[in-house]
């Protein structure tokens, strides 16, 4: 995952109307979208809301001027665990439906239910919308801007400092990870090579992990000592300048929040009336 760090940060450094928005606005807007999607009960109303949200996301993505391939790549990266749960839904009944209709019988007494397919689609839509919101947020906001935004919104200074340090050194360890991989490859070591004894592979990986652990600990010690030399103490924290929101930020925030609240409520009320 650390390899993607550089790739994601590169996209975040591009310029567009979405990139230029204040980080606070983007964090709150995307959180509102996610919470609205998660809070929606597991009913077919999710389809309508999900599709409207996805259309909204697509507009924002187009405004960010990022290629759709970036989105597809990042989506593929986080799919596996969620997709595993979603795919197997179709073979099981669940508590959200009263009656289940079998649409296919498979060997070993396995059935595929129409309602379960619907439920799986609901889960998939919820999952994809929430992940898309996060992808948009991180692809258009630099990590440090996100941290400053969170700090301005009241993230405790201890956390802001800790996250700041972590973000700073993520890139250092990203390079270290690359170098370690290169040196392993130079020694013709491949953890996936089944010709090598398994114990030997685990041992090598264990030693590599131990090395990274020690190196990060030593890096931490060095950082701590150098920070002490520069006057770091108990009351030190990241200095975050105040930054008022611009008119465009306010507009985007109001539109997003109003959209996240009104769309599900309107669709929910319409669907309930129809049923």
């Amino acid at each position: 995952m650390i390899e993607e760090l550089f790739y994601i940060e590169k996209t975040a450094y591009k310029d567009s109307i979405i990139h230029r928005l204040d980080a606070r606005v983007k964090i709150v807007s995307m959180l509102a979208l996610i919470i609205a999607m998660v809070a929606l009960p597991y009913t077919p109303a999710v389809f309508a809301v999900g599709l409207v949200f996805f259309a909204f996301f697509a507009i924002l993505w187009a405004l960010s001027m990022l290629p759709p391939l970036v989105y597809a790549k990042r989506l593929l990266m986080v799919l596996p665990f969620g997709l595993f749960i979603i795919l197997f839904q179709i073979f099981f009944t669940n508590r959200y439906y009263g009656v289940f209709h079998v649409i296919a019988n498979l060997p070993f007494g396995i059935h595929i239910y129409a309602e379960s397919i619907e439920f799986a689609a609901i889960l998939l839509l919820k999952f994809v919308i929430c992940v898309s919101a996060i992808i948009l947020l991180s692809s258009t906001t630099k990590l440090h801007d996100m941290l400053e935004g969170a700090g301005r919104m009241g993230l405790p200074p201890e956390f802001a400092l800790t996250f700041g340090m972590m973000i700073r050194y993520l890139f250092v360890f990203g390079y270290m990870y690359r170098k370690i991989n290169e040196s392993l490859a130079t020694r013709c070591f491949d953890p996936f090579n089944s010709a090598l004894p398994y114990r030997y592979r685990i041992k090598q990986l264990g030693y590599t992990v131990g090395t990274i652990f020690i190196r990060s600990y030593q890096q931490g010690e060095r950082v701590y000592t150098s920070m002490l030399c520069r006057g770091y103490g108990r009351d030190s924290h990241i200095f975050i300048v105040k930054k008022p929101l611009r008119a465009i930020d306010w507009t985007f925030l109001v539109i997003c929040c109003a959209f996240s609240i009104t769309v599900p409520i309107t669709i929910w009320l319409t669907t309930v009336r129809l049923y």
Binding site: I2, L161, T162, M166, F173, G174, S216, G220
Partner: peptide, 17 residues
């Protein structure tokens, strides 16, 4: 605390192996 923060970055790298 900075030491733990740097270590967290290290653990993040470890999880990539």
């Amino acid at each position: 605390v900075p030491l733990v923060a740097v270590l967290a970055a290290g653990i993040f790298a470890i999880q990539t192996l």
